[in-house]
Amino acid sequence: ELIWEQYTVTLQKDSKRGFGIAVSGGRDNPHFENGETSIVISDVLPGGPADGLLQENDRVVMVNGTPMEDVLHSFAVQQLRKSGKVAAIVVKRPRK
């Protein structure tokens, strides 16, 4: 059984690379294997702001206090874009 651990990460936006993450998932883009609608970190740019803080497959729980459960992919992207220079991101990942 999976035990999820929650992490809060504060990312500083890089002028060229943004937050250095890509997200997939969302209500309109469920996971191809299990139908899960979570917003998921799909890519972490090496050397970017999120490197060492976020991991691929982290589930995004909140962005700047806005819940990311059962939202559209575009909504999640929009929340990240409009967060200015700093984003507080809450993620969960299975305990190893």
Rank of each mutant, 00 (worst) to 15 (best):
A76G: 04
D58W: 04
T66C: 08
A88G: 11
G65M: 05
V77C: 13
Q12R: 15
I41T: 01
V86K: 15
T8H: 09
L45T: 15
R81V: 13
R59L: 07
D14E: 06
N64L: 01
E56Y: 13
Q55C: 06
E69L: 09
G52L: 03
E1Y: 12
L53W: 07
L54K: 03
E5W: 04
R95Q: 13
D58K: 03
G47H: 11
I3E: 09
F32W: 05
N29I: 15
R27H: 07
E69A: 13
E69Y: 05
G47V: 03
G47E: 12
M62P: 00
L80Y: 01
V63P: 00
R27T: 14
N64F: 00
Q6V: 09
R93E: 01
V77A: 07
D51T: 07
R93G: 03
T66M: 10
D43M: 08
R17V: 13
P46K: 11
L11K: 03
S38K: 05
S38D: 12
S38W: 14
V91S: 00
I89C: 04
Y7E: 12
W4M: 14
P94A: 10
A22C: 12
V77P: 03
L2T: 09
V63I: 15
F75A: 08
G52C: 03
Q55K: 15
T37G: 12
P67L: 12
G84Y: 07
T10H: 14
S24Y: 04
A88W: 05
E33V: 11
N57Y: 10
Y7W: 08
E5T: 09
A87T: 12
G26A: 02
P94H: 09
K16T: 09
E56G: 07
S42G: 14
K96H: 10
K85H: 09
V90D: 08
E56S: 11
A76K: 01
P67C: 12
V77D: 12
K92T: 07
M62K: 14
L80I: 14
R93Q: 01
S42M: 13
R81F: 12
A50L: 00
Q79K: 08
V40Q: 11
V40A: 07
V71A: 11
P67D: 11
S38Q: 06
D28C: 04
V61G: 02
S83E: 12
Q6G: 03
V61W: 05
Q55Y: 15
A76F: 13
D43N: 12
G48V: 05
D58Y: 01
P46G: 07
W4P: 04
V61C: 08
V61S: 07
L53Y: 12
E69S: 11
V71E: 11
G65L: 05
A88C: 14
V9Y: 09
D51A: 13
K96V: 13
P94Q: 11
Q79V: 14
S38N: 09
Q79A: 14
N34I: 06
T10I: 05
L54F: 03
E56T: 08
Q12Y: 10
P67I: 08
P49I: 04
T66I: 12
G26P: 00
L72M: 14
S15A: 12
D58A: 01
Q79C: 14
L54H: 00
A76M: 05
P67N: 14
I89Y: 02
V86G: 08
V9N: 02
L54A: 04
L45A: 11
K85L: 12
D14H: 15
I89G: 01
G35A: 11
G84Q: 11
A76S: 04
P30Q: 05
L2A: 12
E69N: 12
G52M: 05
E36L: 08
D58I: 03
L54G: 04
Q12A: 09
A88N: 12
A76Y: 04
S15N: 09
G47A: 06
L80T: 01
V91G: 02
P67A: 07
I89F: 11
G47R: 05
T66L: 14
F32I: 09
L72W: 08
F75V: 09
N34T: 15
L80C: 02
L72F: 14
D70Q: 08
I41R: 01
Y7I: 13
V44C: 05
G20C: 05
K13A: 15
G35T: 07
V71N: 03
V77T: 09
L2E: 10
N57H: 14
D14F: 03
M62V: 09
A88V: 09
Q12L: 08
N29L: 08
G84F: 07
V60M: 06
A88F: 10
K16D: 10
I3C: 08
R59H: 08
G20E: 01
R95I: 12
P46R: 14
V40K: 07
S74V: 11
G47K: 08
T10Y: 08
T37Y: 08
G25I: 02
A87P: 02
V86P: 03
G35Y: 05
N34S: 15
T8M: 08
E33Q: 15
K82M: 12
N64K: 03
Q78F: 09
L2G: 05
W4D: 03
I21N: 03
V77Q: 09
P94L: 12
Q79R: 09
V71P: 02
V63G: 00
Q55S: 08
V63D: 02
P67E: 11
V60T: 02
N34V: 03
V60I: 10
L2R: 05
V71D: 03
G20P: 01
V9H: 07
S38M: 04
L11S: 01
R81L: 11
R17Q: 15
V60N: 01
D51L: 04
F32E: 14
G26K: 01
G25C: 02
V63S: 02
V77N: 11
S74H: 12
S42A: 07
E33F: 07
N64W: 00
F75R: 04
T66R: 11
D14W: 03
W4G: 05
A22I: 13
L53K: 15
Q12I: 06
K85E: 11
V86C: 11
P46V: 07
V44L: 05
F75S: 07
L11F: 01
A87H: 02
N57I: 02
G25T: 03
R17G: 10
R17N: 14
T37H: 09
T8Q: 12
G84P: 12
I89E: 02
S24M: 09
L45K: 15
D58G: 01
S24D: 06
V63T: 02
I21T: 00
Q79T: 13
L53V: 10
K96L: 07
G65T: 12
I3L: 06
D70E: 12
V61K: 12
I89D: 01
S42T: 15
I39L: 07
T10E: 07
Y7Q: 12
V86I: 10
P67R: 09
M68T: 12
R17P: 04
K92F: 05
Q78V: 04
V60P: 01
F19I: 04
P46M: 08
L11V: 11
G52P: 04
V90R: 11
S42F: 04
S15W: 15
K92M: 07
N57S: 09
S74K: 09
K13R: 14
D58L: 00
L11H: 00
G65P: 00
I3G: 04
E69K: 15
V71H: 03
R93N: 03
G25D: 02
Q79S: 14
N57C: 05
A22Y: 06
Q55P: 00
E5A: 10
S24I: 04
A88H: 10
S74A: 14
I3S: 06
G84I: 10
V61R: 05
P30I: 04
K82V: 08
S83C: 14
E69G: 14
R81T: 13
T10P: 05
T66H: 09
W4C: 08
D28M: 06
F75W: 09
E56M: 14
Q6Y: 08
M62Y: 14
P94W: 07
G47N: 15
D28A: 05
G18F: 06
E36V: 05
R27D: 04
H31Y: 06
V9W: 05
G48K: 14
V77H: 07
G25W: 01
M68I: 06
D14Q: 04
M68G: 02
G20L: 01
V91K: 02
I21K: 04
M62F: 09
V44H: 00
